[in-house]
Write a protein that binds this DNA or RNA. Structure first.
Lengths: 214, 214
DNA sequence: TGAAGAAGTGAATTGGAATTCATATCATGG
DNA sequence: CCATGATATGAATTCCAATTCACTTCTTCA
């Protein structure tokens, strides 16, 4: 025997892996998924292109893992807010606000994470985390229903709608083409109000049914 | 002179163009944008690959135009419902329902139109039509505000949120991975109710402000 | 110190679909 | 029915970034 992976090497390896993941984050935050090539990421991480492939099996998986890392962190932050003190509706409002604020602050990155087209692996990861956020909201809605703060409703469907309203409400303003943000604070309050009303309103107008012409 | 484009030829040309666009619709409705290659579309249209390029400058533009064709039709249908008789809220509910029903019926196609990743040109067209739908909703919200049916609000932001809630509420169920649809009718009512409440609720709970930890 | 095995490198290869283009077929009008 | 010009064809080419791999550099331990 003449070689054994020592702990120091193990750490260096882990370190390099992390640096590559961080580089993805940095590059994507800069030029989005569109402009993020493996070679660019490698350069940003200070390694050769080939090295990337010693740590990740493919571009798709690398990018998906980078997204997961980021998204999980956001989920944790939002979940923490959702579990704080206060009524379910107050916590839901807080959670929505925190999500929005953080997205608006890291605009390009947020847009990439939420909406920019990317490899299938990335889309899959995105789906997962969309659901993770949705789950956080769903739990809050359930709590609210239990405490009679929200009327009975399909919590899962409401949570999905809420996630949609949130991202679409932000995406327009977040999209790179959209110019500078208008009144961010007001926008966030609008979105929050929209969502809160949707889940907490006691009655909705009597609705007439129509048949659609196919 | 020995050749002049006769009217018959003109028609044939137009016809072929249309057939190609329809072929895109058919292929995308079958295998999504992902599996839709120019060669496949050409075959479905009964022409050679090269012929496609005599009618469209690039794959992206072809696909974008096909999407636009489809989306414009949907916008027209929804707009028609939105302009029918009845109170703004009733019409808004109808518009939402019609959109959803039609999406659910042409599931694969709808998913591709709404959410499937595709060439940049297609995404651009998607954005445009998302806004077109959103505009229809926005007009209804304004009407509702004018008639005191909805409380004052930023109609544009609400419309965007509404569009988001609608597509996200549907996307989960529409996504190809998701199995067979559960109770479609109930789901559509859930989504409609969510949206209606969001724009029509008179009050929303007093909300506490928190600072996010960056 | 050096032999054995790992990890790193980046130029060269690959792959797969979009796009082109030389050739064939068709339409027109004299 | 030919000359002229348009349109159609689909095999061959192009393009371009992901991925590979022969080679170099680094680590370990006897």
């Amino acid at each position: 025997m003449a070689y054994r992976r020592t702990e120091r090497v193990e750490e260096q390896l882990q370190d390099k892996r992390d640096r590559i993941l961080q580089a993805v984050r940095a590059v994507v935050g800069e030029v989005g998924f569109h402009g993020a090539q493996v070679a660019t990421v490698a350069e940003a991480a200070g390694v050769a292109t080939g090295t990337v492939y010693r740590h990740f099996p493919s571009k798709g998986e690398l990018f998906a893992e980078a997204l997961a890392l980021n998204a999980q962190h956001e989920v944790d932050v939002v979940a923490a807010v959702a579990q704080a003190d206060g009524s379910p509706s107050a916590r839901l409002a807080d959670a929505l606000r925190v999500f929005s604020r953080r997205a608006v602050r890291a605009r390009r990155l947020a847009w990439a994470m939420i909406a920019e087209p990317a490899e299938p692996d990335v889309d899959a990861a995105r789906l997962t985390y969309r659901r993770a956020f949705s789950d956080v909201f769903e739990r809050l809605i359930r709590e609210g229903i239990d405490q009679d703060e929200f009327p009975p409703q399909n919590a899962q469907a409401s949570a999905a709608c809420l996630m949609g309203a949130l991202s679409e409400g932000l995406i327009g303003p977040l999209a790179p083409e959209a110019g500078s943000l208008p009144d961010t604070r007001a926008l966030i309050e609008q979105i929050t109000a929209f969502c809160l009303q949707a889940v907490s309103a006691r009655h909705y107008p009597s609705l007439r049914l129509v048949e659609s012409k196919p």
